[in-house]
Design a protein around this nucleic acid. Structure first.
Lengths: 133, 133
DNA sequence: CTAAACAAGATGCATATACATCTATCGTTT
DNA sequence: AAACGATAGATGTATATGCATCTTGTTTAG
């Protein structure tokens, strides 16, 4: 199951990365923009939990995104925390990428069919939930 | 969908990596041992296609596995090719890991239920096929 | 209130991953 | 056979990823 997921992830990532390459952003980073857009300002740890991603992995990825000016970091009330939010350039990047992102999704969805698509969205979430217990 | 798959992959990988950590091998590498065990001797490129993994990614991973003596590389009739096969130490490692690997799978399968499990195996394969067209 | 326990990230390190580019080799065409 | 285009990997570079460990704050036990 692990191998299956990783294989599919690699294959999918290439599709999405191809679509975003002209914008100079990777699928992982774009996902973070999307999450921040919905979640507003969150701590690095909270963001990690949303993505099931180690907080220390985010240290490096957010560093890159910060260099591009896509996000802003800010000290929290608890001064150990880094509060992260979308910056202007990040919103712009998000807007520019959405159509490409959705084009890939639409194509994929057409090829899989709505039923499998919906099933997959549900099942992959359930796997994540089970695996992170 | 891409984000969902990556999230699930990260979560799953940790489960499998945890189980294999005492053996000093990663899930990705263990998967390669399993594939080689079934496939026998294959070229690096063929192995990459089986895993939907870039052949140049394998250059580094196989290098690591070679250091451990788990695989053997050999020149092909076509001298551009690297023929890869399981080495003795790789078979041993595979045998030592199988029970741990299967324990994780059994636990996961129990938590998901057979129906979702089977569905997932089928659907993730189909996604890979669609995405690598 | 202080010392110990704990939590949030940063850093060092190793692996995973792919693309662009380069080299060696192969097959084909003339 | 020489030249040309195609293929298999190797290498440089950048990002993705997590663990162990360290630092810096915060919380809690006494």
């Amino acid at each position: 199951m692990c191998a299956n997921f990783r294989r599919a992830s690699r294959a999918l990532a290439q599709l999405y990365d191809d679509a975003l390459r002209p914008l100079g952003i990777r699928a992982t980073q774009f996902t973070i923009l999307q999450v921040l857009s919905r979640a507003g300002e969150v701590s690095q740890g909270a963001l990690g939990r949303m993505l099931s991603m180690d907080s220390t992995t985010l240290t490096r990825t957010l560093e890159i995104m910060d260099r591009h000016g896509w996000i802003a970091k800010q000290e929290g009330k608890d001064r150990r925390e880094r509060r992260i939010r979308l910056a202007k350039a990040g919103e712009v990047q998000l807007q520019r990428g959405v159509s490409r992102w959705e084009k890939v999704q639409a194509q994929l969805r057409r090829q899989l069919g709505d039923e499998r698509w919906d099933n997959l969205l549900k099942l992959t979430s359930e796997v994540t939930n089970v695996a992170t217990q």
